Simulated scan of single mutants.
Amino acid sequence: MFQHDSTRRTAARRAGLVAALGLGLALTAACGGGDGPSGSSSSSKGRSGSWQVGDCGGPDPKQAPDGYRPLGCDEAGATFKALEIAPAGILPGSVRCPAGTDLMIRVSVSYGSSAKDGSKGGGIPTHTVCGRNLSGDHPGDAGAGGGQLVKGDCVSSSAQEVACASAGRDAFTVLDLVEEKGQCPAGTTEPMELTLSIGRPYDVICTAPV
Score class of each variant (00 low, 15 high):
residue 208 A to R: 14
residue 17 L to H: 12
residue 147 G to Q: 10
residue 132 R to N: 00
residue 120 K to V: 08
residue 80 F to A: 13
residue 51 W to V: 13
residue 136 G to R: 07
residue 59 P to K: 07
residue 100 G to K: 13
residue 78 A to N: 04
residue 149 L to F: 08
residue 126 T to I: 14
residue 202 Y to M: 02
residue 94 S to M: 07
residue 75 E to F: 04
residue 22 G to K: 09
residue 13 R to V: 15
residue 82 A to Q: 02
residue 206 C to G: 02
residue 176 D to T: 05
residue 40 S to W: 02
residue 6 S to V: 09
residue 53 V to S: 08
residue 157 S to E: 12
residue 196 L to G: 03
residue 119 S to G: 08
residue 144 A to N: 10
residue 46 G to L: 10
residue 13 R to I: 13
residue 19 A to N: 05
residue 208 A to L: 00
residue 164 C to R: 06
residue 66 D to I: 13
residue 205 I to E: 02
residue 196 L to H: 04
residue 88 A to G: 00
residue 33 G to I: 12
residue 76 A to W: 00
residue 166 S to A: 15
residue 114 S to Y: 04
residue 25 L to T: 10
residue 125 P to Q: 07
residue 54 G to S: 08
residue 91 L to E: 06
residue 94 S to Q: 10
residue 186 A to G: 14
residue 153 D to L: 02
residue 131 G to I: 12
residue 88 A to R: 04
residue 58 G to K: 07
residue 47 R to G: 05
residue 65 P to Y: 11
residue 129 V to D: 00
residue 137 D to E: 13
residue 32 G to F: 11
residue 1 M to G: 11
residue 7 T to M: 06
residue 105 I to Y: 01
residue 37 P to I: 05
residue 206 C to W: 07
residue 174 V to Y: 01
residue 178 V to Q: 11
residue 128 T to Y: 06
residue 154 C to L: 10
residue 99 A to L: 07
residue 28 T to W: 08
residue 92 P to D: 05
residue 130 C to F: 09
residue 146 G to D: 08
residue 13 R to S: 14
residue 11 A to T: 13
residue 6 S to L: 15
residue 66 D to K: 05
residue 181 K to V: 15
residue 111 Y to K: 07
residue 34 G to S: 12
residue 209 P to I: 09
residue 158 S to Q: 13
residue 164 C to H: 11
residue 62 K to L: 01
residue 56 C to N: 01
residue 107 V to Y: 00
residue 141 D to C: 02
residue 148 Q to P: 03
residue 1 M to S: 12
residue 125 P to H: 03
residue 192 M to S: 02
residue 10 T to Y: 10
residue 101 T to N: 03
residue 22 G to F: 02
residue 162 V to C: 01
residue 95 V to E: 02
residue 133 N to M: 03
residue 121 G to Q: 01
residue 43 S to Q: 10
residue 141 D to N: 15
residue 207 T to A: 15
residue 52 Q to E: 14
residue 42 S to H: 06
residue 197 S to N: 11
residue 150 V to K: 05
residue 112 G to Y: 04
residue 145 G to D: 04
residue 92 P to G: 07
residue 73 C to T: 11
residue 147 G to K: 10
residue 136 G to L: 13
residue 158 S to C: 00
residue 171 A to H: 01
residue 161 E to T: 14
residue 155 V to L: 05
residue 88 A to F: 04
residue 61 P to E: 08
residue 100 G to A: 07
residue 55 D to A: 03
residue 130 C to T: 06
